[in-house]
Nucleic acid binder design. Structure first.
Lengths: 338, 338
DNA sequence: CTGAAAGCGCTTACAG
DNA sequence: CTGAAAGCGCTTACAG
């Protein structure tokens, strides 16, 4: 049995290949009768139009690539899941671009659109893996791309962001409201914009409450669970220990809680811990982690829609900012007396 | 600036497009001098060969699709990460096929190879989303596919499996060795082969130790964290409570530990809990979860290599079984006296 | 409403 | 070692 192409279907239904193509792509411009014949033949032959053929002709791969540091991070995998669901609805397939924090890999993935392998990019990085030096005409040739969660310095790029500063402010304020005065943070990777914004939110909340900033309470983490462990250990060494720790992601909060337990501290009675993200497991740890929820589904959906608009040459908002929610669970409580 | 295609490069270097193509794909059959010229032109023009063009010609998309139930599951995301790393080394890109447990979606992803969108499939399911009824000549037309972790009933398919039964046996034996006699399990989705094999391993260990099987101790979970929570609650209601719970994945073990804590049980003093998988966070929960490690990186690497062999028409092993390791941490301890 | 033809951007068998 | 040409499987402007 030879492979079924458009030619075979055309022969089977007694029309030209042009008409077969039209029936499949623009049924409304084909007569009812012909349409019927063709559709019957398509079904009978089990014809599946070859994507490479149509892609080459239309100059659209039908793929988008999502460039993201680490699929293994539960926040990221949640986002990817949301993107994929939305992409499918819009008729796109998603290529996975897990950079594993390697800029070279990011560049390779970004090049996929130059190679015609993908039509657009969803970029979760503060680092633009694309050359934006203007050409001789002062023009920058940017592929369809939307920058998500992390913000690139380059301005002329569509962005879907989360109000990290406000989120961090709310988390810190929550601790302040509970009577905490010595509030430590465990940060994410230094250069990320999420980290910088969350740090700003933390500091503003403290200043606003008239609490003096103490740089010793700012511990450098990296959004990974072990850094939550390591930095918390350092914090426990202090003579003037903090009474609360604000971790810039839930994973690090898990690590912090772990260390606290291991060393005989009750959470939240001896020490409060709050995270950021609201990953799926945050409510299932013991104690359930208070956190700042990022609207994962909305982020995924929104950025995919924005990219879709760019791909279809429709007007898209230059900048969209999504809101967070403070989720109070069991890992935060009143500051211990004394 | 017009788009740079092979024609422009050919013109720039004063050779035919055929020679440009050869220089890029088979440099060794091109003269040193020509090669130089062409490579210079390629670099100067910033030429990126169009993938759709070459794919159409070679009939290879250069993509593989991984069909997996839920990227959001940390075990799965670990696997995907490993696959992607390996795929890239072998020159393939990976299309994400998150089925969200919907068979329709699985079929759609599987069809990607019929549409020429992907060259092969990595299938993490006991359900074959492909029609294998033989055609008039008794032939089954199977795309390049390797079945991973979960096993399909269809035999003529290459498989990379994990010795789930042995893994479950080891976990159960570990509990038996600690003096436990009433050992409950919280299973995964009923129909999955992983679940069936783990259940068999559990039962064999008990029988082997002369412990009577009690079906009431078999709780139906679904590999999701909430089912660990729900089923543990039911277990605690029993008058003759178990002293240990073997969860068929770490996520459910996290849920179990959570419920135990919430209800005042100390783990492992009052109740031991052991998981399966060894996801990244298993060691960072409190207490750190004892578990059965699946060789995630090896699984990802091996299945990708197997698929690669199929794609390149090289001989590939029909069946590969990978081993697990028992990882004893802090969530399992001696059975309480009494 | 439909067909014949051009062409998307490559690769490769064939000939020299 | 290199070029001219065919062709991968489609879509679509053009003509009728």
């Amino acid at each position: 049995m030879a492979k079924i192409g458009i030619k075979q279907v055309a022969a089977l239904s007694g029309v030209s290949i042009a008409t077969v193509s039209r029936t499949l792509r623009n049924p409304e411009i084909v007569s009812e009768k012909t349409r019927q014949k063709v559709n019957d033949a398509v079904k009978k032959a089990g014809y599946k139009p070859n994507k490479m053929g149509s892609s080459l002709r239309t100059q659209e791969s039908g793929n988008i690539v999502v460039i993201i540091p680490d699929v293994t991070d539960p926040f990221n995998s949640g986002i990817i899941c949301a993107i994929e669901r939305e992409a499918q609805k819009l008729g796109y397939s998603v290529l996975l671009g897990d950079t594993q924090n390697d800029p070279k890999r990011a560049e390779q993935y970004a090049e996929m659109v130059e190679y015609g392998q993908a039509d657009g990019i969803l970029l979760f990085s503060y680092n633009l893996p694309i050359d934006v030096t203007p050409d001789e005409n002062g023009q920058v040739n940017l592929p369809p791309i939307v920058n998500v969660c992390e913000s690139t310095a380059y301005e002329n790029i569509h962005k879907v962001m989360v109000d990290d500063e406000e989120g961090a402010r709310k988390a810190t304020q929550h601790l302040i409201d509970l009577g905490h005065k010595r509030i430590a943070v465990i940060t994410g990777n230094e250069n990320t914009t999420t980290n910088q914004n969350r740090l700003a939110g933390y500091q503003k909340a403290l200043i606003n409450a008239g609490i003096e900033l103490d740089d010793r309470l700012i511990m450098q983490g990296n959004y990974q669970i072990d850094s939550g462990v390591e930095q918390t250990k350092k914090l426990l060494l202090f003579k003037d220990r903090p009474t609360a720790i604000f971790c810039f992601c839930d994973l690090m909060a898990m690590g912090a809680v772990k260390v606290l337990h291991d060393n005989g501290y009750a959470v939240p009675n001896d020490m409060s811990v709050i995270g950021f993200d609201d990953i799926k497991f945050a409510e299932f740890t013991y104690p359930a982690i208070s956190t700042v929820r990022q609207p994962v589904d909305e982020i995924g959906k929104t950025c995919m829609h924005q990219l879709y608009k760019l791909l279809k040459d429709k007007p898209a908002e230059q900048y969209i900012e999504l809101k967070t929610d403070l989720i109070v669970r069991d890992s935060t409580g009143p500051a211990p007396k004394g």
